Every structure is written in C-alpha cells, then in structure tokens.
Amino acid sequence: MNTLAASWDWLTTSANWQGDNGVWNRLAEHLYLTVVCLALSCAVALPVALVLGHLGKGGALAVNVSNVGRAVPTFAVLVLLLLSPIGTWGSWPTIIALVLFAVPPLLTNAYVGMRGVDQDVVRAARGMGMTGSQMLFRVEAPLATPLILTGVRIAAVQLVATATIAALAGGGGLGRIITAGFNLASTPQVVAGAVLVAAFALIVETIFVGAQRAAPAWARGSGG
C-alpha cells in the first residue's frame, strides 16, 4: 500500500477519531489554542495600531519592529521561552510564541488601513466638531475595517498552520497526531496529520472570506 492510500486508510478509520488522542479531541484543542491566541493577539495589536494610525506618529516604527520579529522562527522563540523561567508556566510559552507570531499582520494591516482613510473625510469630521476619540471610532476605524479584517483573517490562518508547534512543548492540537506518527515511524499518520492541518486552515480561510463577503458594504470596502 502506497503512502497516500495508507494515509487515506488512517483518516477513514473511525478508531483514529475517537478518544483523548483521536482527531476530534485534537481538533478541539487546536481550535481552542487558535481562538485564544487570536483573541490575545487582537487585544495587543489592534489598540496600538488604531491609536498610532489615528495619531500618525510612531506607527511606521512599530510596524517595522513587528515585521522584523517575523524573521525570527516561531519555533526558535518557543525554544527560548521553554528554556527561560516562563517554561514552567504550562502552555504559556506556546501561547506567547504564537501571539508574537500573529501580531505583525494584525498590526500592519490595521495601521495601513487607518492611514489609508481619506483625509478629506477626516477633515470634514473634524470640521463638524468631532473629538479625537469620536473620529477614531466613528470615522477612521469603520473605514479601515476591511483591511483590519484582512489582517485578522491572515493571522487566523497562520495560527492554525503554526499551532502544530504546541505538540513540541507537550501541548495538544493536531500537531500531536504528527509527532505521534514520527514516534511510531508511521509516515501515513504523519501525512494524515499534515492533511488535517491543511484542511483546517482552508476551512478557516473559507469561513473568514465568506463572512467578509456577507458583511455590510462598509466592512467589505465596497461602496455598494
């Protein structure tokens, strides 16, 4: 039996989907880790990007610093965190590494979206007597929403693909299926695990694209 056929056989064996080590449980762990890291990344990156984009100061430096951070492999960050005192904090080394990985696309897209707002609209809002916070939340942020949502989508898909590193730190997720396959010298299981991760990433991408298309015109960046 060739590898692809054996991998399909692994995926279609019901026993591999049940129990603590089964696909359903690992998928739930992977989804939970992705959602937590995405929420934390948004909480860190979006307020900074919105404020800097509104002020028009310091944003370029913040974006460049975050993009430099993208050059550092997430696995290397995880290893350094595991070797530090943070390594004793349970799943936090993995979460911190993934959050740092997801921040750059969120920060970059949100900042670019804010700076791309039509300045005639901003000046008109200022002329109407709007305060800085009113312009930020009622004018600039809504107009920047399409790019902000694009950043969230990119970060979510990247997190799904990269969250497999949790298995290297003893965490859960679909990465455990891949590492278990390596430990068992089972190439079909490794391939099956990789297929599951890729399929999950494609599903997340499709959900975000569909949600954005179904959103109001202003959230799609469309005038009608």
Rank of each mutant, 00 (worst) to 15 (best):
residue 71 A to M: 12
residue 145 T to R: 12
residue 57 K to Q: 11
residue 39 A to G: 09
residue 49 A to N: 05
residue 164 T to V: 13
residue 117 V to Y: 14
residue 52 L to K: 11
residue 67 N to M: 15
residue 137 F to E: 03
residue 149 L to E: 11
residue 8 W to M: 12
residue 73 P to A: 02
residue 208 F to D: 04
residue 199 A to Q: 01
residue 209 V to Q: 14
residue 97 A to W: 03
residue 177 I to K: 04
residue 189 Q to G: 04
residue 7 S to Y: 01
residue 65 V to S: 09
residue 56 G to E: 07
residue 189 Q to V: 04
residue 54 H to A: 15
residue 121 V to R: 14
residue 206 T to N: 12
residue 215 A to R: 11
residue 163 A to D: 00
residue 175 G to F: 00
residue 23 V to H: 09
residue 221 G to A: 06
residue 41 S to K: 03
residue 58 G to V: 03
residue 35 V to Q: 05
residue 25 N to G: 00
residue 19 G to I: 01
residue 221 G to H: 05
residue 11 L to H: 08
residue 218 W to Y: 13
residue 152 V to C: 11
residue 97 A to I: 00
residue 210 G to R: 06
residue 16 N to E: 07
residue 100 L to R: 01
residue 82 L to R: 10
residue 152 V to A: 12
residue 19 G to E: 07
residue 70 R to K: 07
residue 224 G to F: 15
residue 26 R to M: 03
residue 10 W to V: 13
residue 37 C to Y: 00
residue 149 L to R: 14
residue 130 M to A: 13
residue 172 G to P: 06
residue 19 G to H: 08
residue 122 V to P: 04
residue 179 T to Q: 04
residue 69 G to F: 09
residue 21 N to T: 14
residue 188 P to A: 05
residue 164 T to P: 10
residue 169 A to D: 10
residue 128 M to V: 03
residue 182 F to S: 09
residue 131 T to M: 08
residue 108 T to R: 15
residue 130 M to C: 12
residue 57 K to V: 10
residue 85 P to V: 07
residue 179 T to A: 01
residue 6 A to M: 05
residue 211 A to W: 13
residue 148 I to L: 15
residue 208 F to N: 05
residue 158 Q to H: 09
residue 177 I to N: 09
residue 57 K to M: 04
residue 32 Y to L: 15
residue 169 A to S: 10
residue 113 G to H: 11
residue 174 L to G: 06
residue 80 L to C: 08
residue 69 G to P: 03
residue 132 G to N: 11
residue 195 V to G: 04
residue 140 E to Q: 15
residue 21 N to W: 13
residue 15 A to P: 07
residue 5 A to H: 15
residue 2 N to R: 11
residue 175 G to L: 01
residue 1 M to D: 09
residue 160 V to C: 02
residue 54 H to W: 14
residue 185 A to H: 12
residue 120 D to H: 14
residue 23 V to G: 12
residue 80 L to R: 04
residue 187 T to A: 10
residue 65 V to G: 04
residue 172 G to M: 07
residue 186 S to Q: 06
residue 84 S to W: 10
residue 59 G to H: 11
residue 10 W to T: 10
residue 173 G to Q: 01
residue 9 D to A: 14
residue 96 I to A: 14
residue 33 L to G: 02
residue 184 L to M: 13
